[in-house]
Nucleic acid binder design. Structure first.
Lengths: 175, 175
DNA sequence: TAGCAGTCGGTTGTGCACAATCAAATGACG
DNA sequence: CGTCATTTGATTGTGCACAACCGACTGCTA
């Protein structure tokens, strides 16, 4: 059964802790479930599309993200990579080792601070950038989005993500 | 304060108000990269938020998705689960075994067709549904989205996903 | 009815992702 | 100087995800 959506939800929006009163839950809950599910699905759809394209270069999608960061900045510490890509060392360490073994990056301890490891592209890694040049365009076409839609979607996802981060942070603080 | 991905890029271009940007590939490529990245990030942000909540029930997020499907339909074949959740048997088989070992589902070969395996909730699995009842509401609040935004985002993601699926299908057909 | 192509799950191997834990280096403080 | 908390990567263990492959079952067809 389908409830009418148009019930009011107009009350004051405290970003803090509203008890979340709406009795019209059915519809909302359905939406929540669908959102989580479709997000999952979209993520995997992207992955599926990138996979064969990147395979030509010998990269996986997360490896590609790392190479993008390294190409752009010339060199990045593991910490910086982890922050910008939202990955922890348990994920990055083996991933970077695979990239090193593949010959795309060099890893070395910083002389300034022996705790940090600096990642930089090798010659081969830099050369790879050329071969990867047309990937974004190919992917872009597949999405079927124009610039407007692209940036709207990006904005919406950014907002959700930062809301979720804030919520997680909140929970963190509570213990 | 915690910044997300969408931080300003190096230049001061405001997205959305391009006058007439047909040949301006740089901007487009940047958007592509950001979209893929933020999608990845959003997916993980959701996961991070769900993780501790579901841990109370002894479920992971994909397991939760399976239970949602099973709760709703009473019983589902592995094939059906795979189709609706976009998971293949290599992922589902061990996942279902873990759910079985946890006591939430039963798995048995269909008498009608010995090839297929039917999954259904146990008593304990059905009981779990009650305890999971308030999860959507808690998550929903954390997203900070109202119903309108929620369904817009859902629509946008659905469109992208089906475009990507179509593209992948296209590629498939070409070999 | 005998054979065979297609369907359905399962297994194996690789890689991503996180939690928990650890060791080494650093930096602040007495 | 020595102590100790912090920072930084690495390691281990669990679970998700897919590709490639296998074996059992089904259903069609010669």
């Amino acid at each position: 059964m389908l409830r009418t959506v148009s019930d009011r939800t107009d009350e004051a929006r405290e970003p803090g802790d509203e008890p979340m009163p709406p009795a019209d839950s059915e519809q909302l809950l359905r939406l929540e479930r669908q959102l989580c599910f479709v997000l999952h699905a979209t993520s995997r759809a992207f992955d599926t599309l990138y996979r064969p394209v990147l395979a030509e270069l010998g990269l996986t999608y997360p490896q590609y993200l790392v190479m993008l960061a390294v190409w752009e900045h010339g060199e990045r510490s593991v910490k910086e990579l982890g922050q910008s890509l939202r990955l922890d060392s348990g994920t990055l360490s083996p991933l970077l080792k695979r990239l090193e073994k593949a010959g795309f990056v060099r890893r070395e301890r910083s002389p300034a601070d022996e705790r940090s490891v600096v990642v930089q592209p090798t010659e081969e890694g830099i050369a790879l950038r050329e071969r990867a040049g047309d990937i974004p365009r190919r992917i872009l076409r597949a999405t079927g989005l124009d610039e407007q839609q692209l940036s709207e979607l990006h904005g919406a996802l950014s907002n959700v993500t930062s809301a979720l981060d804030k919520a997680a942070e909140e929970i963190d603080r509570r213990e």
